[in-house]
């Protein structure tokens, strides 16, 4: 329990510091366009890595592909592409994953 509070506290501090530093220290400075692009690509890379980690699950020392997770991700991706609505796409993805899990 204490660990969770400690975790939240540190998370809050590092996140706030990044915001404050931007406003106080980086203001008026020219940042190279390469650095800007790099910072903007970082979330795409991290989110992709998180998805990969969920699709390929380490089981007794090797990676195993989870079909329910893979298919639910593909369906959610397709749904959000077509509908542009986040929450319905998440629900569609989860329901599809559940169906795959029970029927395959």
């Amino acid at each position: 329990m204490l660990n969770q509070w400690l975790f939240i506290g540190i998370l809050a501090i590092v996140t706030y510091l990044s915001r404050l530093l931007g406003v106080e220290l980086m203001a008026g400075r020219k940042m190279s366009s390469a650095l800007r692009l790099y910072f903007n690509y970082v979330p795409v890379a991290i989110i992709t890595a998180l998805i990969v980690k969920q699709i390929f699950i380490p089981t007794s020392g090797r990676l195993v592909l989870s079909f329910p997770v893979l298919i639910s991700c593909l369906i959610a991706a397709l749904a959000v592409r077509l509908t542009r609505h986040f929450l319905p796409s998440v629900v569609i993805g989860i329901v599809t994953g559940l169906l795959v899990r029970y029927f395959l």
Binding site: F7, I10, L11, V14, T15, S18, R19, L20, L21, G22, V23, E24, M26, A27, G28, R29, M31, R36, F39, N40, V42, P43, I46
Partner: peptide, 21 residues
């Protein structure tokens, strides 16, 4: 987790710099 979040937070520097004025 903290290192990853710090990396993710780097873009706040951009936003802060752009919004400061």
């Amino acid at each position: 987790i903290l290192l990853t979040v710090m990396l993710l937070n780097l873009r706040n520097l951009l936003y802060g710099a752009a919004l400061a004025e």
